[in-house]
Design a protein around this nucleic acid. Structure first.
Lengths: 115, 115
DNA sequence: GCATTACTCAACTATGCAGTTGAGTAGTCG
DNA sequence: CGACTACTCAACTGCATAGTTGAGTAATGC
């Protein structure tokens, strides 16, 4: 009994696009910075270490797929997280990565010393 | 007050790798098929419409990053989901995509007819 | 108006990766 | 043993995209 009866190709493509948008360390850095609240492109550029144009491009992509919202404030453009699910997603993935890392460390240790 | 105090570059890279693994429609098709239970490569190939070599490569990648486990059974290789979080992740993302699609349909309708 | 700031966009290069093809490796049957 | 099946691997092609550079645009200050 399938838990998810049917996934249309369109749905799958949409879901893949969303995952892919988060599948880039640079974009995760930006998202992570936005966890603390809205930020201007300049602030995000400085904090991330990315070039201005590169940060702008990544933020534009995140905006296009709907992960962040944009707002003009005088000379600045202010970005903000658009979806509360971001936190749940990150928590799930971070837990997973930590577990994988722990398991890997475990097998490595076992392989190294205790047979 | 940050909810996620610090993310090391290593962690970010790991999380990005996990997201990127799910950021391909072909791999999502395979994962989706595995929702119903374990399957051989041949079954997954037939059901997905992918070529054998391509399906094998995608499954290998999913295995490398820890989304699925592999088991040899006679001539066959049987794949199975390795992480319960898969379901939660998919549900989060699917809900999100459906909402985005609905919102998009709404704005399109509004743009088309009702001012 | 002109200069400056803060960003976006377009064009380019280089790397990565999806998909194909053909060879290679288990495991099974006779 | 040899033939067959089920899969994996390696080399290749082509397209997508990360990052750079330089030009373009909107808001502010003079």
């Amino acid at each position: 009994m399938p838990r998810h009866a049917k996934m249309t190709p369109t749905m799958l493509a949409g879901v893949a696009e969303q995952f892919r948008a988060l599948g880039e360390p640079s974009r995760l850095v930006l998202m992570n910075l936005l966890f603390d609240g809205e930020r201007t492109v300049g602030e995000l550029t400085d904090a991330s270490g990315l070039s201005l144009a590169n940060a702008s491009k990544h933020l534009g992509l995140l905006h296009d797929v709907g992960w962040v919202t944009r707002r003009k404030d005088g000379l600045n453009v202010v970005y903000r997280l658009a979806d509360e699910r971001t936190f749940a997603l990150c928590e799930l993935m971070c837990d997973r990565v930590r577990e994988l890392a722990a398991a890997e460390a475990g097998t490595t240790a076992r392989r190294r010393g205790r047979a």
